[in-house]
Design a protein around this nucleic acid. Structure first.
Lengths: 133, 133
DNA sequence: GATGGACCCTGTAGCTGCTACAGGGTCAAG
DNA sequence: CTTGACCCTGTAGCAGCTACAGGGTCCATC
């Protein structure tokens, strides 16, 4: 079993997570507090690398912090049904789809707006007009 | 010229903007400070209604506050080229398209993840696995 | 052993765009 | 004269970081 120790800087490089963000995750209890050296430096082991990698991947998929927290809790309880994890993923899918729908509506609106520009002066700008009552 | 006066509550109802938000817009200098009654109530006129409607529509299109501010400034200078307004719209389009692309990538990823669930226990959950290093 | 630079520490404030109080004042109807 | 609906200010909170300020540590080099 090869267990390597890392400073916060190394952990950041290994996982691609900003140092300040790592400390933030610790503060909100997402990442467990690591041991300290005599000089009060944080010392991370392989568990931390794994956990932080998990967090980063989940965050990259847009999962909110609180959902990541629940996922981590679940992954610590191997005898729970996988369906609980799946439900979180499905909920996130729905959320993403809601946002996609919103943005698509926006794009349509903006496109219509942009097409109305005929050059000229602000005084008879259709865009400004469209935004006015 | 019919000029009607409104309290903040009426203005909110007319424009669909939350009262607290209206005060917030005033604080950040987006909506000009209105006159006050002897009892220190804000009194809004038609200009305020127009301006706040403009703000709301622009915000609904996702324009950031600072962009709305520039748009309002432009709409106050009728002799400037309309192209400056158009540029803001085009930039917002790009922003929306960037976000759409991001979300579409997310949806694909999440979809793949969700499909991997075979039921069973967390211990051999593919989703958890996929998020682990 | 002194010095320099790269790294680490804590604590706090800022970002966006609101929203939600707490703790008060005003005003009109009944 | 009281009740209730409205208004006021000021401040804190949300998410999820990020960016300091003002210090300490560690290691290599002179």
């Amino acid at each position: 079993m090869t267990s390597v120790d890392h400073t916060i800087g190394t952990l950041g490089k290994l996982t691609g997570v900003n140092i300040e963000t790592i400390r933030y995750y610790e503060r909100i209890g997402l990442l467990p507090e690591p041991a300290r050296t005599s000089g009060n430096y944080r010392v991370y082991g392989d568990t931390h690398v794994r956990r932080l990698t998990f967090i980063r991947k989940a965050r990259d998929l847009g999962f909110p912090i609180e959902t990541v927290r629940r996922m981590l809790a679940l992954s610590d309880q191997p005898d729970r049904p996988c369906a609980e994890v799946d439900a979180l993923v499905v909920e996130q899918m729905r959320e993403v789809e809601r946002k996609l729908a919103d943005l698509e509506r926006l794009r349509t609106e903006l496109d219509r707006l942009a097409r109305q520009c005929r050059g000229g002066l602000v005084s008879d700008c259709r865009i400004i007009e469209a935004l006015s009552p």
